[in-house]
Simulated assay, not measured.
Amino acid sequence: MSETTGRVLQLLGLLQSRRVWSGEELARRLGVTTRSVRRDVDRLRDLGYPVHASTGHGGGYQLGAGAALPPLLLDPDEAVAMAVCLRVAAGGSVAGIGESALRALSKLDQVMPARLRSQVSAVHESTVTLGAATDTPVDPDVLMTLARASRDHEHVTADYVDVRGTATRRRLEPYQLVTTGRRWYLLCFDRDREDWRSLRLDRMTEVRAQGSTFIPRDAPDAATYVRHAISTAPYRYTARIRYAAPESIVAQCFPASAVQVVADGPDACIVTTGGDDPAAMVPWLAMPGCDFHVLEPPELIEAVRMVAERISRAGSAC
């Protein structure tokens, strides 16, 4: 592959990864002059890729949707089949597949003509999946809208029903999507509450990108924030337990979305999790099969004593 060909392919990848790039940004990423960028853009146009250019504030190069798919990629039937499969995969339970499928679908949707999008929607709406991987399915269009808005820093509005059943209208700055395998979450900044939020996508409806953009804030780590929000924040009790086993061993015994595991030396770790019923938590916390010591709360410490005494009495009666 020649240097020019490789650079043109790299340019195409950059244009697919974000909505708008300035000529100066592309030149820096590619290590060339803005004049070379213009020549490479012309090469992409000659190959059939619809690259638009605009001037002024917020202007730059943008990969648009054309009247036909670019050559050497997919014909219309293949594009529809691929998009339908990716929509199904985006809601699947295989580790990593949902996120990868969503990224691929976002790239494909960006250059897909409107008539093909309608075909994809028609097939998807007339299809029922037996034995879905999750009992909280998410509309692929909601996934697509939030993925694009997160990438392009675009304001979003949505109706949301929280865990208490309260319905509200939200004005959001979306930052990143997080999947646990069973559910999808959005890390976002709530403009009305002026604070960060972790929202479940299956509780969101009427999701709309507003067209206006925002300047990104210093965001918390998405995975850490969502893990804390779903493992401890919704519950009455927050528990900390020290296990006499390495972090790598204990972490395999719990769903990653339900606990936070931190090493406490080479042969021990501390688990933080949440629950509403201390007695019901005890058998679950005993799953690693090693010695453990409850650090807090007092209610869980008392529940461990009660369960231990009950089990001891049951053993004595045998």
Rank of each mutant, 00 (worst) to 15 (best):
A239F: 06
P297E: 03
G289M: 03
A258F: 04
L295D: 06
G265D: 10
R242C: 09
A263E: 09
I249W: 07
E247S: 04
I241F: 06
F254D: 06
A256F: 04
I241C: 05
T272W: 09
D267N: 14
L295K: 04
V282Q: 01
A245M: 09
V261L: 07
A268S: 15
H293V: 12
E299W: 01
Y243G: 02
I241T: 13
P283G: 15
A258V: 03
L295R: 05
P278H: 10
S248H: 05
P288Y: 08
G275A: 15
F292E: 01
S257I: 05
H293A: 13
V250Q: 03
H293Q: 07
P297M: 02
A258L: 08
Y243V: 00
G289C: 04
A263M: 06
P283Y: 14
V261G: 04
E302N: 07
I249M: 10
P283W: 12
E299Q: 03
P297Q: 00
D267P: 05
V259A: 03
L300F: 06
A303D: 08
I241Y: 09
F254V: 00
A303N: 05
P288V: 03
A251R: 12
P246K: 05
P246H: 05
I241A: 04
P246N: 00
T272V: 13
A279I: 14
P297I: 09
A244H: 13
G265V: 03
P266A: 11
P246Y: 02
G265W: 06
A251W: 04
D267I: 01
A263I: 08
H293E: 12
G265C: 01
Q260V: 15
P266F: 06
C253Y: 01
D291M: 03
D291T: 06
M287W: 12
V294I: 09
A286E: 10
G275W: 14
A258C: 05
P246G: 09
P283S: 15
V261N: 03
P278A: 08
A303K: 01
D267V: 02
P266Y: 04
A256G: 15
Q252L: 08
I249E: 07
T272A: 14
M281H: 13
A279S: 11
G274T: 12
V282H: 09
G289E: 05
I270C: 07
V259I: 11
D277A: 15
T273A: 13
C290Y: 01
R242K: 13
I301W: 00
V294M: 08
V262E: 14
A251D: 01
H293Y: 10
D291A: 14
E296S: 04
Y243A: 06
D291P: 00
I249A: 12
C269W: 12
L295A: 08
M281R: 05
A280S: 12
E296F: 02
L285N: 03
Q252E: 12
T272H: 10
A263K: 00
A280P: 03
A286R: 10
G275Y: 11
D291Y: 03
E247R: 15
